[in-house]
């Protein structure tokens, strides 16, 4: 308890220091020179008032507040609320990820339970696994001919491997004595898979799912920067083109928070299926 409180205090202190340094560093040097207002408008606040080119914490805070106040506005294809953009990204991640779950867990079971399939599929997995998911993008765009579906495919392909490998490992590493219990009780293959192997491998499988959701959330930002249109990745790129660094920083923070939430959900789920012996 005491450590928790002290840790929280140190965290708060570090955060305060960071904000303070950020504020000081972006304070700017005051008015430069008196110039014609028309000209000042043209060169911008940085040159005319000595304001820092980097937004300060107050600017970003104000921006976050504006986004929180109205997250779901829609004023055309290039001006949508942060909530809408996030919803697009999360939906894509979820669809691609769930398809990957549906493929990786059964195939992982197969690999884990059958030494033959394990060896037969190993070379494919070894070659496909290290491919950057974005390298699939052109091929996906060419074959699927839909940018949104292509980004879902990229999410699918990047979340597949950690789940597949962890499932296969978890299934293959089920304690022999539990399998022997099943054998002496003459438990059939299907019942054994669902009542012994699945619960025994569940913590490992969920760890794979947790790694996958993390990677999927990393990749969606990059994928949406490429395909454009909607999503938080597109938002970041769009705001970069608008040179709205405040919005870019806001989006970075939001991406971090959503990634943390997704990770924590799976961490909780892992805890639920983990039983000490």
């Amino acid at each position: 308890m005491a450590v928790t409180w002290r840790a929280a205090l140190v965290s708060l202190l570090l955060f305060g220091t960071f904000i303070g340094v950020w504020h000081l560093a972006t304070r700017g040097g005051g008015p430069v020179a008196s110039m014609d207002p028309e000209y000042a408008k043209l060169v911008g606040a940085t040159a005319s008032q000595g304001k820092s080119a980097m937004p300060g914490p107050a600017d970003v805070g104000l921006k976050i507040w504006q986004h929180l106040k109205d997250p779901f506005y829609d004023r055309g294809s290039n001006d949508k609320g942060l909530g809408i953009q996030l919803a697009y990204s999360i939906a894509r991640v979820m669809i691609g990820y769930l398809i990957a779950v549906a493929v990786a867990i059964p195939v992982g079971f197969l690999i884990g339970m059958s030494p033959l399939m394990s060896r037969a599929l190993d070379p494919f997995i070894q070659v496909l696994k290290p491919i950057s998911p974005l390298a699939w993008m052109p091929l996906a765009l060419y074959t699927i001919k839909d940018s949104s579906l292509s980004s879902i495919f990229v999410i699918f392909i990047c979340s597949l491997w950690p789940m597949l490998i962890n499932t296969a490992f978890g299934v293959a590493a089920v304690r022999k004595e539990w399998l022997n219990v099943a054998r002496t009780l003459e438990v059939g293959t299907f019942r054994r898979a669902f009542t012994i192997i699945l619960p025994a491998a569940a913590p490992t499988i969920l760890t794979g799912m947790r790694i996958s959701i993390g990677i999927a959330w990393l990749v969606i930002v990059a994928a949406e920067m490429l395909v454009g249109g909607t999503g938080i990745g597109y938002f970041v790129w769009n705001e970069w083109n608008n040179l709205s660094i405040t919005n870019v920083i806001t989006a970075i923070l939001v991406i971090g928070v959503v990634g943390m939430v997704l990770d924590q959900v799976l961490a909780r789920a892992t805890k639920l299926v983990t039983f000490p012996e």
């Binding site: 022997n180 219990v181 003459e186 619960p199 299926v273 039983f275």
Partner: peptide, 27 residues
Amino acid sequence: GPSLDRAVIFQSHALLPWLTVMGNVAY
């Protein structure tokens, strides 16, 4: 092969940790 007629008590008890006492026996 194994049979329900020949039950084994394992040295390391080999209980299924995700099941309760009742669950293990009922299994």
